[in-house]
Structures are given as C-alpha cells and as structure tokens.
Simulated scan of single mutants.
Amino acid sequence: MSPRERLRGKIAALQAKTEASGCTEAEAMAAAALAARLMAEHGFDQAEIEMTEATAPDSSIRTTNRTTWRDKLSAAIAFYTNCAMLIRSNQGDILFVGREPGPDIAAYLRDVCFGAVDRALREFKTTPFYARRRKLSTRRAAAADFVDGMVLRLSVRLGELFKPVRNEAARQEAKQALAKREPGAVLVPLKDRKERYAGAGSAGWRAGADVGLHHGVGGSAAPLAIEDRS
C-alpha cells in the first residue's frame, strides 16, 4: 500500500467517526476537522475518498503492443461497472477503481468470465473445425477468432444487463481518481484484429450465450453478478 493509499484510508476512518458510530460530539467534530485539513493539505477531494478499488490477477504474457482478448474483456467489464481500469504488468494484476461495490463486482466478473472463456476454448479445440486446421498458424487464428466472438457476445450481454445501473458521471469520477492514484499510467488504445475464420467467430458467439448472467440479490436495480453454468 502506497503512502497516499494509507493516507486516504486514514481520512476515510476519520470521516467514519460520528455520533452514530459511538463517538461523542466533540470527538466527531475533531475527527471531521482533522479529515478536512488532511484533504486540503494533500489535495484529496471527497469523490476520491469515496472511491474503492479491487484487483484481479493478470498473468498475461505481453510480447507486443497488440491488445489481447483479456484486455478487451476487462475493459468492457470496467465500463459496465462504472470503473476505471489499469493493467499493472509489474505487479501481475489489473486494478479496478470506482464507487463501491463496482470494483469488487468487476474483479469477480473478470475471474468468472476468464474461466468461462478458457473452458470454452478448450472445448473448441476438440471440434472438427479446429482439427481441420493443419498448420499451427491457422489453428492459432481459428482459436483467436473463436475467443473474439465469445468476448464480443459476453460484452454485449453485460451491456444489456448493466444498462439500468450504468452511470457515465460515476465512470468519469473513477477515471479521475485512478489518474490521481497512478499518475504515471499510460493510456494504450485497444486495437481490433481482423477475423480470418467466420465459422470460429460464430462458434465463439454461441458459446458466449451459454454463460449464465443473472441479477444480484436485491432486485433489478442492484449490482449484477455473473454465473458460469458450464
């Protein structure tokens, strides 16, 4: 945890000291005054204090600047959960920042979606379509087209389900908070690859429909969860 993260936690703890939490009026006022002073001295604003974060492991090997399917799917999940995302290759993880409970949902969705794609890809590699590709290069292309189709289907379905809770203002706040926490981060645009085998892409699209998505507990307006039925 960085010094800024520890300070942010201290400010949040001070703000939590209220009469309702068991503090006396004097204690609560003193805590509020100290929190306000720390925020002013160190350039925090309330939106940043209210932001939470979560991480998901990322073991992707990046030998080129080409965007991977994992990057695309992670970016889609961050977008629909009103989060900002940062790939931290030096730490082997992806950081999600946003208003609670967005980051925790994003990290959970990412783990489950990745598992679903990995399992579906293994199954695709046992199909006659894949076996008919004799060269390593053509098999890799077919596998990539399959995964791209599945990631696209998952992204579309997540967009449909998260539409009631999407908030662009909250996402912009998350991006600003991430920029403050990681000032040296570099924006890398996502790049699409050209499809080679439409049949593989269609198979991936169908596989994306087999991952069960459902609303979380608490009604249709609540944060959403994902369930893998495979």
Rank of each mutant, 00 (worst) to 15 (best):
A144N: 11
A143H: 02
R166V: 13
H215W: 06
F44L: 02
C23H: 08
A28R: 03
A13D: 14
L224K: 13
T81H: 13
T138R: 02
T68H: 06
A32L: 14
E160H: 04
D145Q: 04
S230I: 09
A13G: 07
A177W: 01
T68G: 08
G199H: 03
R206E: 15
A179E: 14
T63D: 06
D148L: 03
L38Q: 05
P189K: 01
F114E: 14
R70M: 09
A141M: 06
E123M: 07
L213H: 02
R181K: 06
A198P: 02
L136S: 14
A33T: 14
L73W: 01
E25I: 08
P189S: 03
H42T: 04
Y130E: 01
A20V: 08
R196L: 12
M29C: 02
L161M: 15
I226H: 02
D145W: 02
M150T: 04
A174H: 05
R88V: 14
R70Y: 05
G219D: 09
E50D: 15
E53M: 09
P3M: 07
D145K: 00
R110V: 01
I226P: 00
M51C: 14
L14F: 07
F129M: 05
V147Q: 11
F96N: 04
V147M: 09
A198W: 03
F96M: 04
A143L: 02
F44R: 03
R140S: 09
A20R: 09
K135D: 14
Q15H: 11
C23L: 03
R70C: 02
T63M: 12
K10H: 13
K72P: 00
G149S: 09
I226T: 10
G102F: 05
A47S: 14
A75D: 14
A116C: 10
M85I: 15
I49C: 04
T55R: 13
F146R: 02
E19V: 14
A221H: 03
N167H: 11
G92V: 09
S155C: 03
S89P: 00
R70P: 00
G102W: 05
A30D: 13
R181H: 08
L224I: 13
F124T: 07
F162P: 00
R66F: 04
L213I: 11
Y108G: 09
A31R: 04
S21G: 02
C23P: 00
V151A: 14
P57R: 15
S155G: 05
A131Q: 10
L152Q: 13
A106D: 03
N167P: 04
D45M: 04
A78N: 05
K191N: 09
R70V: 10
A142M: 06
